[in-house]
């Protein structure tokens, strides 16, 4: 028996549920109850979360109750993200409502899920080993991530590595891949069949669109995997793709800096991060052309 997915709900019914009691979605490894009267949110969910499991409205435990609702003061012009009545962010334009939901969900995970160590990084897997790419915005991390998952890598997350400190494994948290500005067109050309959600223009990050997760990555969301590579990517105009080994102690510090909550974990957190670095090959990676980059990653030797 296969579980019902969001695709099984007609759009008008989905919109009605979103506007009232909300819909419960399994967004591995979490469950969220999502509410929103804003049409663009329903549109984004229907497009990008079609294959995610839909859970019954009654009797379901949800990790987070989230909503994106119209702001009170400027009806229909601004929207706010709510987590259970809490409003952690300033309002955004209604056109950004779906992207706001995505950012809000990230905040829920990094702010509350302290049984895991969360690290700001794009995360993919191949041959059973995980590639972790921690990087600041503007490094081309998401573009690279999208290109790799369209070329045989499994997506674990484009936004955060979830390290289970007890097992040393990375848990998949596959969610739509966030792309910005020119990257949207670049990836569209690379994969004409990729499905994109609503375009949010003029956000603080520029124009943002999300790309649907490949079915296979979602289907394998319950399979954690062992870290294998820790790579710090940097987009450098006109530069050839270049992989340079990086000192592990330095890689460790940068990994820790990109972690949202390693400080909460104390010594076990330190040991888990150290183990991750110890079993991963560490590199700096600079590139300007995606095709070259993909080739380099295809040839990455498997770590011990």
């Amino acid at each position: 028996m296969t579980a019902p997915t969001l695709a099984s709900v007609p759009r008008d019914v989905l919109r009605r549920h979103l506007g009232s009691e909300g819909v419960c979605l399994r967004i591995p490894p979490f469950t969220a109850r999502i509410r929103s009267p804003i049409p663009i949110v329903g549109e984004g969910l229907a497009t990008l979360y079609a294959e995610y499991e839909l859970l019954p409205s009654d009797g379901t435990f949800a990790d987070f109750h989230v909503a994106v609702v119209y702001g009170r003061r400027f009806p229909k012009a601004l929207c706010v993200f709510e987590m259970d009545g809490l409003r952690p962010f300033t309002p955004l334009a209604v056109g950004e409502a779906f992207a706001f939901l995505e950012w809000g969900l990230n905040w829920c995970v990094t702010g509350y899920c302290h049984t895991l160590i969360s690290i700001h990084a794009a995360v993919l897997e191949r041959h059973g080993r995980v590639l972790i790419m921690p990087a600041p915005p503007g490094s081309g991390k998401s573009t690279l991530c999208a290109a790799l998952l369209l070329n045989g890598w499994r997506l674990l997350s484009d936004e955060m590595a979830l390290l289970d400190p007890r097992t040393g494994l990375i848990l998949p948290a596959p969610r739509p891949v966030s792309l910005k500005n020119q990257s949207i067109e670049i990836i569209r050309q690379l994969a004409p069949h990729a499905i994109f959600g609503p375009l949010a223009r003029d956000t603080m990050k520029g124009t943002v669109a999300h790309m649907r997760v490949p079915s296979d990555s979602l289907a394998r969301a319950a399979e954690p995997a062992l870290p294998g590579w820790l790579i710090f990517p940097r987009y450098l105009p006109e530069s050839p793709a270049r992989l340079v080994a990086r000192a592990k102690s330095e890689g460790f510090m940068q990994l820790a800096e990109n972690s949202f909550n390693q400080n909460v974990h104390g010594r076990p957190g330190f040991e888990a991060l150290s183990d991750l670095v110890a079993r991963s090959d560490c590199y700096d990676f600079t590139y300007s052309r995606l095709a070259e980059a993909i080739e380099v990653f295809d040839r990455l030797p498997l770590p011990p």
Partner: peptide, 14 residues
């Protein structure tokens, strides 16, 4: 639900 209790406990302990 337990992982939320554990997460909060970890934070409090730290």
């Amino acid at each position: 639900p337990r992982r939320h209790l554990e997460a909060a406990a970890k934070l409090a302990l730290r």
